[in-house]
């Protein structure tokens, strides 16, 4: 029964939560502060980060938000580096047959030399609510990353700056958000990343996280976001070309959200 209410609450409020954007467990474990990182999952939150990927790679992820089955998200991502560009595609499905959001994205990223890259992503959103109907819309994302000095990156990203929405009603607006951030790799072992995120007409958040490679095949991660106050943690295992990542986030009131992903790089 409690579960039913939780589901109901999230179904009703999910339009404003928008945390359903699944950033992949590596970035999530670092408090989702991924705007200045390089990873296949940056497709979701600043695709400029995919230009450092040299071989075709793909990954799939599953998240169980607040440990409620009906609030799970499934996602897949693929990156294909071409001669002058990198191409990326991502797919994400959130919810249950009762309430379902689908998001499909295509990204084009280009590196200008070693220190600057930029990317454009086009998304197609579909929303279906049982006994109510379906609707769809488009949105775009744009971002860049710049390496100020060796291993120090700054980045900025905008998602849905034109505030596209499903229907005319305001409550169905897809949030527009802006992020700026920086990441620094201290040694081969330690990466620290931070990001400030502003949701237009919403809240401002500061997030920071770090990744520590305790062994060549094992990385530990942790992070914190300030508004709302949440802690994040996780680990990643790299075995030859396969990597397995796990993350968990802890919301002070709603509880834990675990996420797992499997990736393969050719």
């Amino acid at each position: 029964m409690i579960k039913f209410y939780t589901t109901l609450i999230f179904t009703l409020f999910s339009c404003t939560v928008f945390a359903q954007n699944l950033n992949g467990p590596r970035i999530q474990a670092m408090a989702n502060a991924g705007v200045a990182m390089q990873d296949i999952w940056t497709l979701k939150n600043n695709a400029a980060g995919i230009t450092s990927i040299e071989n075709t790679a793909f990954a799939i992820a599953y998240e169980n938000r607040f440990s409620v089955k009906e609030l799970s998200t499934k996602s897949a991502a693929v990156v294909i580096p071409l001669k002058k560009y990198s191409l990326g595609a991502s797919f994400q499905s959130y919810g249950s047959p009762v309430y379902q959001e689908l998001k499909s994205g295509l990204s084009l990223a280009k590196a200008f030399g070693e220190n600057f890259s930029t990317a454009l992503t086009l998304n197609y959103h579909q929303l279906s609510i049982q006994n109510y109907g379906n609707t769809s819309t488009f949105s775009f994302q744009v971002g860049f990353q710049y390496q100020v000095f060796k291993n120090f990156w700054v980045a900025a990203h905008a998602a849905n700056p034109n505030k596209s929405q499903y229907t005319e009603t305001e409550s169905n607006t897809l949030p527009a958000l802006y992020q700026i951030g920086a990441s620094y790799t201290f040694t081969d072992k330690l990466l620290v990343t931070s990001e400030i995120e502003q949701v237009v007409d919403g809240k401002l958040d500061f997030k920071t996280g770090l990744e520590y490679k305790i062994a060549p095949f094992l990385a530990l991660r942790g992070g914190t976001s300030v508004n709302t106050f949440q802690q994040f943690g996780g680990f990643g295992i790299l075995y030859q070309k396969i990597n397995l990542d796990f993350a968990i986030s802890s919301h002070p009131i709603l509880g834990y959200s675990p996420q797992i992903a499997l990736g393969y790089a050719f």
Binding site: F186, T187, K189, L190, V192, L210, Y212, G222
Partner: peptide, 12 residues
Amino acid sequence: IASLTPQISALV
């Protein structure tokens, strides 16, 4: 307690 790099230490 981990000394991640000579400059950075962490406690969890």
